[in-house]
Structures are given as C-alpha cells and as structure tokens.
C-alpha cells in the first residue's frame, strides 16, 4: 500500500515536470549580459536564465545544486568562454546529465567564438603573471560591437536548434543590432553613413575625422557623442576588465589597481600607480561595485582623480536592467560631473 502511494507520487511528479519542460525553449547563460542579449534574440520563444546575477565576480562562483537543475532542463547553454567559467562550468554541465548541452554539441554555444578578442597573450603564459586568460581577455561583452556580434551568433544557433523559429530569431537579432547602432551613433549619423562602416571606424579612431567633417557636423548622437569629450583620456581601472569598452570609445587604460590580474592591491603598487596617475594627469578611476573602494579612494585622494563605480554586468546595479541600459549607465557614470 505504502509503495503504491510512493510510486503514484513519483509518477505524478515526473509527469508534472515533463509537462512543465515541454513547449518553450530553455536557454541558460553563464552571465547576465549573455542572458540579456539572448532574451532580445529569442523573444517570447524561450525562457532565459542566467547563472551569474551580475552582482558577483563571475570568476568565482559555487556550482550550487539549483544551477545544476537549470542546466538539466536547458536546450541551449551559452557561455562567455575564454576560461572565465573554468572554476564552475564543468561541475554544472557534468552534474546536469544533459547531453544536449555538452561542449561540442549544438546546444553549447561559446559566445567568444563570435567576438573580437583583445589581450591575447603573445608570450607563454604562466600563473606567475596572475590570472591571465591564455585565450584572451574575457570581458569582451563591454564592447558594444561584440554585443552586436553575439546577438547574431545566438540567432544562428537558435535557428539551428529550433528551425521553426529561425526567421523570428534572425529578425529579432537584426532589430537588436539596429537599436544598438542607434544608441551607439544616433539615428542621424546612421542615415549618413552605414552602421558597418561606422563600427569599423571606431576600431582605429578614424571616426574622429568623420565627425569633424563639415558634412557630418552635429550629426552624431548616442554613446559615441556622449563619450566624445573623454576620447583620448587615460584612465585607471581596478581589474583589467574595461579594455574593450575603453578600446571602442577611445579611452586609454594607463594602469590597474590590481598589481596583476586577480591579485589584490598592495601598498607598493598603489604608490607606483599614484605616481603614474599624477604624471599622466589621470582624471578617472573606474571600478566595479563588488570591489572594495578603499584603494581607489586613496588613489583619488592623492591624485585628485574621480572614482567612478559602475556595474560591468546587467543586474550589477538596479539601473542596468538590460544590455542597452548597462551601456547607458556606464556612459552616464563616466560622463557625469
């Protein structure tokens, strides 16, 4: 009798769960930024969950049971790659027993494969250098051009997994790209010069000449125009996590508060960068909210620079509700007085 009840309960539970998993696609991303882009691309055809909330340092995370549960039901797993998730991805994927999302299957997408990557080491990497990622700097989502490229990669992969929705995924990705282009360059400039060319020109700074051309005077808008006054400025960042953003907007990262990637600041190193900051007239010290402000404040006190604390991930601060809002927030914090 007891056994029958137990079996029935199990059967009911199983059926309920199976019913719950049928229907919409389930996408699990390692970071909140990937989730934000995936949501924009998948629209109402998928449920998107992120492992990281955007508030924590994604290098360090515990592969807790509820993450395994999310991976168990996923049709598509999207990771940032470049070994950012190396400390916790494998136990989650292994623990999930989900063959659909194993590495090398269509259900496993490495977003880094579609991104433009910086800081690829040209010498042999040893751990004496700190936490250097041998395949390149993993903070590439902070380059809006990479956000644009990731959207396409996600659309193409979703089209492969769920061909019925292919047209919709591609249309969503195109709409995402167009919206991103407008926020980056402003609608008026986009009417004059195609977006692809504008992006290419932000790569080497020729965009400056374009904006200076009499025909384009006053046409730029969006983040590009907002960041224009900061172009060419040198900044100090806490971790080497802002190189992509700096590269796209023409800022130059002169030094990091961490003496080596992933190594907490030391007094000696802080003295050195205070000297650097004074010599190079650095006005901005940029860091994420999860790092202690102590070192940055000390440096600011010694050099007169301004400390800008801003999330580098969606969800890292209340205003950063999606990918566009994150970029809006970073630009706003950097440019406000």
């Amino acid at each position: 009798m007891k056994h029958t009840i137990l079996l029935r309960t199990l059967a009911v539970l199983t059926v309920t769960c199976l019913a719950a998993t049928a229907g919409t696609l389930k996408i699990v991303t390692t970071t909140s930024d990937l989730a934000a882009i995936a949501k924009a691309v998948a629209g109402d055809k998928a449920e998107v969950h992120s492992i990281c909330t955007g508030k924590e340092d994604p290098h360090m995370l515990q592969a807790k049971p509820s993450f395994i549960l999310q991976a168990r039901d996923a049709d598509l797993w999207i990771r940032l790659g470049l070994e950012l998730e190396i400390g916790w991805e494998a136990p989650i994927l292994d623990g999930s027993r989900n063959a659909r999302i194993r590495e090398g299957t269509p259900g496993h997408l490495d977003a880094a494969e579609s991104a433009l990557i910086l800081d690829i080491p040209t010498v042999k990497v040893t751990r004496a250098m700190g936490d250097v990622h041998p395949q390149g700097n993993p903070h590439y989502w902070l380059d809006p051009l990479n956000g644009r490229r990731i959207a396409v990669a996600i659309a193409e992969r979703l089209a492969e997994i769920a061909p019925d929705g292919a047209a919709s995924f591609r249309a969503n990705a195109a709409a995402f790209q167009q919206a991103l282009d407008e926020r980056m360059f402003g609608a008026e400039l986009l009417r004059t010069v195609p977006a692809d060319n504008l992006w290419a020109m932000t790569e080497d700074g020729t965009i400056v000449a374009v904006l200076a051309a009499p025909a384009n005077q006053g046409k730029s808008g969006g983040w590009l125009a907002a960041m224009q006054p900061l172009r060419g400025q040198k900044i100090v960042t806490y971790h080497r996590s802002w190189v992509y953003f700096a590269h796209r907007f023409g800022l130059r990262v002169a030094a990091e508060i961490e003496p080596k990637p992933g190594v907490p600041p030391t007094a000696v190193h802080l003295r050195e960068i205070a000297e650097t900051a004074r010599q190079q007239k650095i006005r901005i010290i940029l860091q994420e909210p999860f790092y202690s402000r102590k070192a940055a404040d000390r440096l600011a006190g010694e050099t007169g620079a301004r400390v800008v604390v801003v999330a580098n991930s969606v969800g890292g601060q209340p205003e950063a509700t999606d990918y566009f809002a994150l970029m809006d927030l970073i630009v706003k914090r950097l440019t406000e007085k």
């Binding site: 490495d110 990557i117 490229r149 060319n197 290419a200 080497d204």
Partner: peptide, 30 residues
C-alpha cells in the same frame, strides 16, 4: 540577408587583425 555573422561587420582590416582574433569554430577548438 539582413543578419549574417560575417557580413554584419566590415571585414577586419590589418590593424584589427593584429589586436583581435575571431576564435576558431567548434571543431577547430577541440
């Protein structure tokens, strides 16, 4: 098409290729 990974951005020019690298595809990485 409106969306295609390769066509969405201008072809990488020499300066771009020096600093950035598009990682090899799924099979290449293995």
């Amino acid at each position: 098409g409106q969306v295609s990974a390769a066509a969405a951005v201008a072809p990488p020019r020499p300066e771009l290729a020096e600093r950035s690298r598009v990682l090899p595809g799924r099979l290449g990485g293995a």
